[in-house]
């Protein structure tokens, strides 16, 4: 215990907040790339690829992110890779986000109306052409609101990276609290900061959804 909350503490929290945004970006981009592959694999013409990707999604969605983070942190160390908390958190979040985004995007691809697929086939487009020129441009429109909604989940979930020692907003709050011991005030500030990051995205997602007139993006993890 010592002293009061001063500008240095707030600067430190601000730095943590920047790392939260950075880690969220890493998770979004990494998870987006892997998730896109998962989404395509889920509707692959090859049965083995479909099954493998479905198993991946089921396993990740059946495991808490906290356990995945521990697995990433200790697992990479166990195979002899010396990893920084950032690398471990980034890799774990990428795998986690990929499973959810893959499932969301698969749904969006499949919800492109059936006649569009048939028309593309009727015009003798190849599989790749059909996907790139007909299906995906429409699927992206459908996918935008739930993806923006899921970004809120990503930002919130980066708070768990604090347990493997990555100093993002939550961890920096814990560190400040260790020196000041004013937990309620500090965690209230942390909560307000997360809210300030997430709420605009939530509103944006809702607005996009209303404009599209359908879809539900709210069914994502706590």
């Amino acid at each position: 215990m010592g002293g009061h909350l001063n500008i240095n503490h707030l600067m430190f929290l601000g730095q943590g907040a920047l790392w939260t945004i950075g880690l969220s970006m890493i998770a979004l981009i990494g998870g987006g790339i892997v998730g896109f592959v998962i989404a395509l694999a889920r509707i692959s013409p090859l049965k083995s690829v479909r099954i493998a990707s479905a198993v991946y999604v089921q396993l990740v969605q059946g495991t808490p992110l906290l356990v995945i983070l521990f697995l990433g942190y200790f697992g990479l160390a166990a195979i002899g890779l010396k990893v920084s908390p950032l690398a471990a958190a980034g890799a774990s979040l990428t795998l986690y986000v990929a499973a959810y985004l893959g499932e969301i995007w698969r749904g969006c691809i499949e919800s492109v109306p059936k006649p569009q697929w048939e028309a593309a086939e009727g015009l003798a487009l190849s599989r790749t052409q059909r996907m790139m020129k007909v299906i995906l441009p429409q699927a992206i429109r459908i996918a935008t609101p739930p993806t923006v909604g899921f970004m809120v989940q990503i930002i919130k979930n980066t708070s768990l990276a604090s347990v493997v020692g990555f100093v993002e907003l939550m961890r920096s709050g814990q560190i400040v609290n260790n020196s000041l011991f004013e937990p309620f005030a500090i965690y209230a500030i942390i909560a307000a900061t997360y809210f300030a990051m997430c709420y605009p995205l939530s509103l944006f997602s809702q607005r996009l959804e209303r404009r599209m007139g359908y879809g539900r993006s709210n069914l994502a993890p706590a």
Partner: peptide, 11 residues
């Protein structure tokens, strides 16, 4: 819905 569970638990 716009704050992490971890923060809520600590609060």
């Amino acid at each position: 819905r716009n704050t992490p569970l971890l923060v809520q638990i600590f609060l």
